[in-house]
Design a protein around this nucleic acid. Structure first.
Lengths: 349, 349
DNA sequence: CTGAAAGCGCTAACAT
DNA sequence: ATGTTAGCGCTTTCAG
C-alpha cells in the first residue's frame, strides 16, 4: 500500500495515479494517451474509460517530465530586433497565433541588434530546449547560428540574411523596394533625393542602399546617403537628422530606410515646420498607422507582414515535423507594395 | 585546455560527466554549482577547479531536469490583450528587460480579451510550470485566477482589475484621467463632447466612462457615449464610427477610450475630411507616435508605461522571492499625464 | 568533507 | 494485450 508521506491533498495527479485507478500499468496509460493504443492493441473498453476519466478529472501530463524524456519542448524561440517596433510586433503576433494553433508556445525576446545579448539569448533558448528558432539575426551571430544548425536545430531567419549562412530564410526584395520608391520620387521630378537610414551592415539595409543607388544612377541624379547610428534613445537619432537637414537645404525628397528612423525624421520635420511634399517629399520602408494618418499621408514601401509570418512559421513547422530535414534550405523573397500617397506627389496640397 | 565553444558536441555534457572528470560524486558538483560549497565545507581547491572547468567547457545544467526536480521553471507567463497594440508592446518590452535581468524568461501571449482562449493559455502556463503570472485579465476569468492564487501562484494583474479578486494589481487612475480630459474639453468651450470607446465590462473602461460622466454632469453638459464592439477587423470598428458621426452632426468634441479606437476614429475623420479641432476636437487615452505626429497633434491621456512595468515586475519578483507571501495584496494606482495638444485647443489652427 | 540513493513524471525498449 | 524497468539530468536527504 502506498502512503503519501507529504499528505498533500491538492497534489496534481500523475500518470501513476490514473494507472492505479484502473489497475493497469502506467505504460498502458501512456500508450493510450499518446494515441498508440490501437497499435498496441489495447482493449477498446479500457481506452474509452481511461479517456473519459482523464477528461473528467482534467488530467494533463507534466510537460516538463515529458520534455525531459523526449527531448522535445514544444516551444519555439522567437528573436526580433525590438518587440515594441510595430513591424516586429505585428509579425510576432501572427507567428504567435499560428504557433499556438499548432501546439507550440513562443518564447520571445528582443535582441536590440546586440550580438552579445543575442548570444546570451540563444544560450538561454538552448538551455530551455526550444525545438526551433525564428530570428531576425543581428550581425556577428554567424558562428552561433551555424553551431545551432550543426546541432540539427531548425532555424528560420527572416527580415535579413547572413551572407555566409545557408539556411531557410524569408525576406523581401529590398533592392527592388527602394529602387522602385526612388524611381517614383525621381519620376515625380524631385532632383535631390536623399536616403536616410540606420548605419547597419545588415543585408536588408545594404540592399536598400543599393537599390537607392541604382535608381539614382539610372536617373542621372546626385545621391546622398545619411547613415545614423542606432540608439535606444530617439533623441540621439533625431539630432543627426536635424544636423543633416541644416547641412543639406537643397534636398527636396527623402527616402527613409525603415519606420523607426522615418518616425524620428517626421518629428524633426515637424519641429522645423517643414511640410511634405512642398518642402521635402517623403517615402519610407515599412507601412504603419503613423504613415497612413499623417498629414499628408506618407508614401510607404509596405512589407507583406502576413505573408512573411505565414512563410516563416510554415517552414519551421515543416522542419519540426522532419519534412524538410533533408532538403536544401529555401530562400523566399517576397514582393513589397509601394503605397503611393501624397507625401511623394509633386503637386499634392 | 581550451575547448572551441562552437565545436559540435555529440552529447551535451551532464553533471555526471563533470563529476567523473574530477572523480567525485555528482552531489558534490551539484553543491558547488549551487553555491552551497561553503556550507558543505567542500575543499577550496576542488571548488576552484570545478568552477574553472565548468566555465571552460561552458557547462550549463539542464534546466528542464532542474525544473522537474525543484518545481521552479524561472519563467514568467505574461498575458496581454494584444501584443501588437503599442501600449501593450511597450509594457511587454520593459517587463521583458527587467525579467531577463533577474534571470527570468518570459512566455507571452495575447488573450484577445477572449475568456476561453485565456483559460487555455492559463492551463498551458500551468502545465509549463511558470513561476508567476502577469496579466491584463479579460472578463469572466475570475475563477481561474482565484484557483491560481489558491494554489499559491504569484499573480500580478495590471491595466484593469477584477472586482471580486483581491490580488496585487497595478493600475492607473482611469476615472480621474477621463474626468480631467473631459473637463479640459469643456473648459475649452466645447459643448457636445462625446465619449467613444469599446463596449467592455472591464474596470478600466467602466471607470473611464464614469469619469467622463462626472465631468459632463459637473459642467451641466449633455453627454453621449458610443460603445463599439471590439473586433480584430478594423473595418468593423470604423463602420459604427462612420454611422455615429453621421447620426450626430452636433458633436464638437470626442474623447476616445483608448489608442486603438482613436486610431480608427482618426481614419474615419480623415475619410470624411473632418479637421480637428475646427470640426471636432479630439482627445484620447494612451499616448503614442500616431498622436504626436498627427496634424494637429492629438491631446492624450498618457499612461506612465515605465512605472507600470516597473511596479508590476517589482511586485512579482518580490512575491517570487517569498517577500510578499504573507502580506496583504497591494493595489497601486498610478497617475496619468494629460498631454494637451492642438487637437483639443479651441482656437488652434 | 563527500557519496549513495531516492525520486520529480514521463516514455519506450524489452519482456511476458 | 499489458507490464517491468531503465533511464532523461538534477537536487537533496541521510549516512558516513
Amino acid at each position: 500500500m502506498k502512503i503519501n508521506k507529504y499528505k498533500r491533498v491538492t497534489k496534481k495527479l500523475s500518470i501513476v495515479d490514473i494507472a492505479n485507478k484502473f489497475n493497469v500499468s502506467k505504460t498502458t496509460i501512456s500508450f493510450i494517451l499518446n494515441g498508440r493504443a490501437q497499435e498496441k492493441r489495447i482493449s477498446g473498453d479500457l481506452i474509452k474509460n481511461v479517456m473519459k476519466y482523464v477528461a473528467e478529472v482534467g488530467y494533463k501530463p507534466n510537460s516538463l517530465a515529458k520534455s525531459l524524456r523526449t527531448g522535445k519542448s514544444n516551444t519555439i524561440g522567437l528573436m526580433v530586433e525590438d518587440i515594441s517596433n510595430p513591424f516586429f510586433a505585428s509579425i510576432a503576433r501572427l507567428i504567435e497565433d499560428r504557433a499556438y494553433k499548432n501546439g507550440y508556445k513562443i518564447i520571445y525576446c528582443s535582441t536590440d541588434n546586440n550580438t552579445e545579448k543575442t548570444q546570451d539569448l540563444i544560450s538561454m533558448f538552448r538551455d530551455r530546449h526550444v525545438d526551433g528558432y525564428i530570428m531576425a539575426p543581428p550581425e556577428g551571430i554567424e558562428k552561433d547560428i551555424e553551431s545551432l544548425i550543426n546541432d540539427g536545430m531548425p532555424v528560420v531567419l527572416f527580415d535579413r540574411h547572413l551572407p555566409k549562412i545557408d539556411t531557410d530564410i524569408v525576406e523581401i526584395d529590398n533592392l527592388f523596394g527602394s529602387y522602385n520608391a526612388t524611381r517614383h520620387l525621381a519620376d515625380q521630378g524631385f532632383k535631390n533625393i536623399a536616403f536616410i537610414t540606420f548605419l547597419s551592415p545588415q543585408t536588408q539595409m545594404i540592399d536598400r542602399v543599393k537599390g537607392y543607388h541604382e535608381a539614382i544612377k539610372n536617373g542621372n541624379l546626385n545621391g546622398i546617403v545619411e547613415e545614423v547610428a542606432f540608439s535606444q534613445d530617439d533623441e540621439l537619432i533625431m539630432q543627426p537628422l536635424r544636423d543633416f537637414l541644416k547641412a543639406h537645404p537643397g534636398v527636396d525628397a527623402i527616402l527613409f530606410g525603415n519606420n523607426h528612423i522615418a518616425t524620428c525624421g517626421l518629428k524633426v520635420m515637424k519641429e522645423f515646420g517643414l511640410k511634405s511634399p512642398a518642402d521635402i517629399a517623403i517615402a519610407s520602408f515599412d507601412d504603419h498607422d503613423v504613415f497612413k494618418l499623417h498629414t499628408p499621408p506618407i508614401t510607404a514601401i509596405a512589407q507583406p507582414v502576413e505573408e512573411i509570418a505565414d512563410n516563416v512559421i510554415t517552414i519551421l513547422l515543416k522542419k519540426l515535423n522532419g519534412g524538410l530535414s533533408t532538403t536544401k534550405p529555401q530562400s523566399i523573397i517576397l514582393k513589397t507594395d509601394l503605397k503611393i500617397r501624397d507625401s511623394s506627389i509633386k503637386n499634392a496640397v
